[in-house]
């Protein structure tokens, strides 16, 4: 379990670094797919197989196909001249390091709460992952579910409007 965790962590962090350091957007997109697969491995380690499958289907499948399609549409050979200037790099690194220091301080230094809920991973494994999520999605979180469907509808209209010939 521990070995698997470090394996996935290495893959995730390495491919995330590759995403932001590659020159070619297509290479970045492929490394991002690798990162999503590593994160799906994390979800399996955390006993959430349903979310792992959704991660691969929605992120690595749908969204990344969309990104690669757009890269193809935009005639990639012209994009190589897009570079970073030095000041931007320095500011970015400083902000990222400060952000990371804050996260580490609050994660390591904070108190760990006792488990409060009753839904342990043993219970989830006994009932079934999809069943538990479906039960909560359609009882306690029904309103959010409906609002999510409206959001998707609005996104369809928005994407259509932006992709039209005349803005």
């Amino acid at each position: 379990m521990e070995a698997l965790f470090y394996f996935f962590a290495f893959i995730a962090i390495f491919s995330a670094l590759m995403v932001i350091s590659m020159k070619n957007p297509l290479t970045s997109a492929l490394y991002l797919v690798l990162c999503f697969f590593a994160l799906a491995g994390f979800y399996v380690l955390l006993y959430m197989q349903f979310i792992a499958v959704m991660q691969i289907l929605v992120y690595a499948g749908a969204i990344m196909v969309l990104v690669v399609l757009v890269i193809m549409l935009l005639n990639i050979s012209k994009l190589d001249s897009v570079k970073t200037d030095f000041h931007q790099k320095i500011i970015g690194i400083v902000i990222a390091v400060v952000l990371f220091a804050e996260i580490v301080i609050y994660t390591v230094g904070g108190k760990t709460r006792k488990p409060t809920g009753e839904i342990t991973h043993k219970l989830i494994n006994k009932i079934g992952n999809t069943q538990v999520i479906g039960k909560f999605l359609f009882t306690k979180y029904t309103l959010s579910f409906e609002i999510a469907s409206i959001l998707l509808f609005v996104a369809i209209i928005g994407a259509y409007l932006f992709a039209k010939k005349k803005l």
Partner: peptide, 23 residues
């Protein structure tokens, strides 16, 4: 959480550093 923090910071770094809209 630490791994999530590292990935989040790498993402923030990419947003601040790169100029390519797709990246």
């Amino acid at each position: 959480l630490i791994v999530a923090g590292i990935i989040f910071c790498i993402g923030a770094l990419g947003v601040l550093m790169r100029k390519n809209l797709i990246i």
